[in-house]
């Protein structure tokens, strides 16, 4: 059985005097225990909103969330605030994008790690401090017992992200959501944090949802990759299938725009033309059509449905390579 089953998740923002806006528009995917799943797409495609919806951290007002998010058979969207808070930090952990703003500047790092243990494992202050020191050590922060007493501004960005990872994994959650955990960091630090993350989730058997705009990040770690565009999943495949043979023109575009070490010298990267600002609504066609090199007439007439091709899911009228598979996937 899947650990997490997301079904038809939609998040609609509705501000006074504005048109409702579906940031997430009917997303479904599964995460099995211990599995690493990628959620990839350009900025603004709804990755963070998806993760906040799973965690129940969306703003209280002006948002409508639909669908189900079943975690171990219980729909998280229907839990009370209290029940959800009991699970956050214990069963579900999250690491955020910006380690500078995501830690509290006026509280020692140690307290920010200990408070999770005190909350969920009922540890006393002293035991929690000991455990926190072990955790900091585990995430590669040198001299942990001294660091416990330090404040965030005394730590580098990479160290802060390590501390945030320690907080998120303190109670060995069964699912960790990492929302662009390395985007704000130096390139050299990025690789260290990524290998730390995959090592830790492997050790603890934690399942991971890795959110990124960079296909290169998921290439090294995820078993399965979901590509998001305009709030919908447009392609899903196992890592090897996806990289060997991208079928969706958007996936192909993303792949062509990541730097590769094995590329011939002088080969320029080809970024996807246009930007998400060019999107058309899904209602009458494909949101990607204005930017798509493969677009055909159907793309601005009918919204492409999700189709299945073996293990691969694809939402496209005119995919790269072979013609579109005919088998439609109604509601999975």
């Amino acid at each position: 059985m899947a650990l997490l089953e997301v079904r038809d998740l939609s998040v609609v923002f509705q501000r006074k005097g504005e048109e409702p806006f579906a940031a997430v528009d009917g997303i479904s995917f599964d995460v099995s225990p211990g599995q690493m799943v990628g959620l990839v797409g350009e900025s603004g495609c709804g990755k963070s909103v998806t993760s906040l919806a799973i965690m129940g951290l969306l703003p209280q007002r002006g948002v409508r969330v639909e669908g189900t998010v079943e975690f171990e058979g219980k729909d998280l969207l229907r839990l009370s605030d209290r029940e959800l808070a009991d699970r956050r930090g214990r069963d579900l952990g999250m690491v955020f994008q910006d380690p500078l703003s995501s830690v509290n500047p006026v509280i020692p790092i140690g307290v920010q790690v200990s408070e999770v243990l005190e909350r969920h494992e009922g540890l006393r202050r002293r035991e929690a401090a000991l455990r926190s020191a072990e955790l900091l050590d585990r995430v590669g922060i040198p001299d942990p017992s001294r660091r416990l007493k330090e404040y965030p501004h005394q730590l580098s960005g990479g160290m802060r992200q390590r501390a945030l990872i320690a907080m998120a994994l303190a109670c060995k959650p069964r699912l960790l959501i990492a929302d662009e955990p390395t985007t704000a960091l130096d390139v050299t630090i990025q690789a260290q944090i990524l290998s730390l993350l995959s090592e830790l989730v492997r050790d603890t058997g934690t399942a991971l949802i890795m959110i990124t705009h960079d296909l290169g990040v998921v290439a090294g770690m995820c078993d399965e990759v979901n590509v998001l565009y305009g709030g919908r999943i447009v392609e899903r495949a196992g890592r090897h299938e996806l990289f060997a043979e991208p079928r969706h023109p958007y996936t192909a575009g993303l792949l062509a725009s990541i730097p590769r070490l094995d590329a011939p010298r002088g080969d320029r990267l080809t970024p996807i033309r246009g930007s998400v600002a060019d999107n058309i609504p899904w209602a009458g066609g494909c949101a990607f059509a204005p930017r798509c090199p493969n677009a055909v007439d159907a793309c601005v007439e009918r919204s492409p449905e999700m189709t299945r091709d073996g293990e691969r899911l694809l939402r496209c009228h005119n995919p790269v390579g072979r013609p579109a598979p005919s088998e439609e996937v109604p509601v999975q």
Binding site: M55, N104, V111, E115, R119
Partner: peptide, 23 residues
């Protein structure tokens, strides 16, 4: 963001308010 982090840790409302917001 750090208040969101505090909520993501499942802390009790009173702890979030006292420790993370008020200070």
């Amino acid at each position: 963001d750090y208040v969101r982090t505090a909520r993501s840790k499942g802390l009790a409302g009173a702890v979030i308010r006292r420790r993370h917001v008020l200070r």
